[in-house]
Amino acid sequence: MTFLMLLRRETWEHRAIVLAPAIVAGLTTLLMLAGLVQGRGLSRDGAGLYLVQGLGLMSPERREASLTVLLTGVVPLFLLTMVIVILFYAVDALYSERRDRSILFWKSLPVTDLATVLSKLCTALLIIPLVTLVFIGLTQVLTLLLATLMVWGAEGDAWSLVWRPAPLMSLWTLALYFMVAAAVWCAPLIGWLLLASAWARKAPLLWATLPVVIGGQLELLAFGTTAVYSLVADRVIGVFRVAFRPDIKTLMQVDGDGELQAVATDRLLALIDLPGLLTAPGLWLGLAVAAVFVMLAIWLRRYRDEG
C-alpha cells in the first residue's frame, strides 16, 4: 500500500507522466481527423474508397503488413516523448524535494529512503513506459475506429478489411516486451540520472551530462577513439540489438519503390529474442552498475546533511 502511494505521489508531482503522452495521443488523433475531413473520408467517393479498394485487392499477408505499418506509424513520436519525459523526470526526482526543502516534510513520515528511491526508479523504468503504452494502445484503437468510419463511408466491410487483419494483440505484446527489455537494458542510465539528481546542489542535468561529455572528449583527444560515447549510445538504442532479431529493422521500412517491407503478423512475435537478451553479458553488467548507482543515491538521500 505504501509503495503504491509513493508511486501515486510521483504522478501528482510530475504531471508530464500522464500529460505528455495524452497530448501526443490527442494531437495524433486531431491530425488523423483533419486528414479524414480533408479527404472527405466519410463520403462514398472520398478517401475511404481508396482504402476499401486498396485493402480489398491485397493478399491477406499484405493487408496485415499494411495495417502494421499504419498502427506502428504513431509509435516513434510516443517513444521520443517518453524518452524526454523519463530524462527530465529522473534528473528531477531526487533534486526537486531538496530544492524546495520539502524533503524535510517527506522525511518526517515513516517512509524509508530505500522505498522512496525505489519508487522513483520504478516510476522511471516502469510507470512512465506503461502509461505511454496505454496511450499508444488508445491511439491505435482510435486509428482503427477512424479507418472503420472511412470503410463504412465507402460501404466496405470494416471487420474483414480493418479489424481482423490488424495485429493489435501481437503489436501490444511486442510493445510490452520492448518496454520491459528497454527498462532493464537502460537501467544503468536511469540509475546514473537518479544519482546525479541526488547529488547535485544545482543543475542536475549538467551533473548528469558533463562527466560523460568531458570523459568522451578527453578520450577523443588522448586516443582518438569514442568508446565512452559508444557505450552511452549503445545503452540508449542497443536494446534493439540485444532484445530483438535483426529483422526488427524491416518492421516499418519502405524500400525504393514504395514497397512495404513490413513483417506479417505471424512473424511479429518471432522478432522477440528473449534468450538473446537474457544471455547478453551487457544486460547483467548493466544491472549491476545500475544497482551501484541506485545504492549510492539511497545513501546520499539518507545520510547527506542538507545543512
Binding site: W12, E13, S96, E97, D100, R101, S102, L104, F105, S108
Partner: peptide
Amino acid sequence: IADVAVLPRWL
C-alpha cells in the same frame, strides 16, 4: 515541523 515553507508547492 521543520520550517513553514516545507510543504511542496504542487501538493
